[in-house]
Design a protein around this nucleic acid. Structure first.
Length: 117
DNA sequence: CTGATGACTATAG
DNA sequence: CCTATAGCCATCA
């Protein structure tokens, strides 16, 4: 169990707070998780998500509003399918972040387990 | 230990 | 729209 797992837990927790029908960028998740400038770590954390931990990973996309998986890959197709199932519309392979971007409310940010505050 | 890699971002030209 | 640069961190060879 690497010590870095603590950062990963924060990231997973933040991703879990993303409501259905919304999307968040890697940098946004990192910032809300208390890890600014660590967008890359978010991607790595999601990649290293342990089996059994179910989080809405598909609601995390890059800053351009596009899926970061290579087009044509199974993961890309699955992520897009999951988002579209939640009502997210893709235009030209991109999502309108102004419309679907998650804007965390104060309540959501404060809604964290005591040991993480 | 060192260097490369990755589901990244922001800024600048 | 593109490329180049720099920053950041965990993991792996």
């Amino acid at each position: 169990m690497p010590p870095a797992n603590r950062n990963f837990e924060r990231i997973w927790s933040t991703v879990a707070d993303i409501p259905a029908g919304c999307v968040a960028t890697y940098g946004q998740v990192a910032r809300l998780a208390g890890l600014p400038r660590h967008a890359r770590l978010v991607g790595y954390a999601l990649h290293a998500t342990p089996d059994g931990l179910e989080i809405p990973w598909h609601r995390v996309i890059n800053a351009r509003g596009e899926i970061s998986f290579p087009p044509g890959s199974a993961q890309h197709a699955e992520q897009r399918a999951r988002l579209e199932a939640e009502g997210v519309v893709f235009i030209g392979g991109r999502v309108d972040l102004d419309r679907y971007g998650w804007q965390a409310s104060l309540d959501e940010l404060l809604w964290k387990p005591p040991d993480q505050v």
